[in-house]
Design a protein around this nucleic acid. Sequence first.
DNA 1: CGGCGCATCATCCGAAAGATGGATGTCCGG
DNA 2: CCGGACATCCATCTTTCGGATGATGCGCCG
Lengths: 214, 214
Amino acid sequence: MTPPIRILLVDDHPVVRSGLRAMLAGQPDFELVGEAATGEEGVAAARRLRPDVVLMDLQLGPGMHGSEATRHIVAMGTAVSGPRVLVLTTFDTDADIVAAIEAGATGYLLKDAPSDDLHAAIRSAATGASALAPSVASRLLGRVRTPRATLSPRELEVLGHVAAGLSNRQISKRMFLSETTVKTHLVHIYAKLGVDSRTAAVAAATKAGLIRPS
Amino acid sequence: MTPPIRILLVDDHPVVRSGLRAMLAGQPDFELVGEAATGEEGVAAARRLRPDVVLMDLQLGPGMHGSEATRHIVAMGTAVSGPRVLVLTTFDTDADIVAAIEAGATGYLLKDAPSDDLHAAIRSAATGASALAPSVASRLLGRVRTPRATLSPRELEVLGHVAAGLSNRQISKRMFLSETTVKTHLVHIYAKLGVDSRTAAVAAATKAGLIRPS
DNA sequence: CGGCGCATCATCCGAAAGATGGATGTCCGG
DNA sequence: CCGGACATCCATCTTTCGGATGATGCGCCG
């Protein structure tokens, strides 16, 4: 008989942790070895407990969104024979999916998934296989089919400042650029998003999940 | 001995329902009488089961946000000796809080509240007393102290179109106004929000919960 | 090597957005 | 009942933004 799958929960919501705990309880091949409420705690716990699978929320407390959590995932993954990371999230915005997958997450699950899907995803992740929620997988496939707008890092940075309400001049100073360059980036952004104004770009990017609403 | 408090759970996330169930389990004076995954199911279950307290999420599935859930709350509350409604949510944006309270919710809890708070809120709600999460309560108080920006209906309408990425001209046509009038509304909006551009206004209003991100 | 995408900059021009200043009308409290 | 606060409407002036066009260096990949 194979040893049980050692699992670490990382989520800042007691309710969610409690729910996941209950969902794992009935499975004899699962062993919950620890819980953490923040990204930092999660990384520390992962180092200490050496779980096989980490179930990790993407929204870890206020101000700790997407890219930050992604870095935590990477930090865990770099450990020798590091754990497999299963990312949990409420919303399936494209930006989060891509960021997490690119950062090395093994799988990606929506929080409204039934317990069967969760169990399957954990077992699948334990073996190293990629496990994606069906709706997420189809979304990723859809993006391949429709070669959707992919903004460069610099363009995303500019767009972020635009979404924050800064003018071109303010952005240029903050990024140590010429105002012209900022405008050029914007022109490219407009072309990629199929819009023709900064506010429309922000609206489109928000809907597409490229930027985070505040 | 008093009869137990009959509770109905309404949340579209199996994980969250499971977590709440676990949190209610240990309490002898609580009785979980039903669960529902959507607002419609919730209303039906409330009519049928006559619970004392309804624990209800504000984000019920895709496309069913704030105001919609609020209407469900109202529908439940209008029944004779209707149940007390405790609203659960992940984010404490002002708009949601106000909308839910105004619609007659008895209490308001953030999902990251510890189980003790949850228990206290349920008991408090069962007696009809208002129960607000401390962070929420202080936020409401804060809004009274700082007479926050209150936009007129017309201004909100304009701002909504701006957030959707429309130009002043487009807005003017859609609202049967002169373009100048649209600009005037915007000037007033800027003054109230303390900003000086349309994108900044959208950012500020989003953060303040005045408009909904997409 | 020769594209191709990314990032950087410039100039010119018309259009959109913002700043300023009025004009109504309503509603509420002194 | 009257003045002030506020919402709604409008016009003129200045600044900013967006569109067009063009250019340079860099790194990557077939």
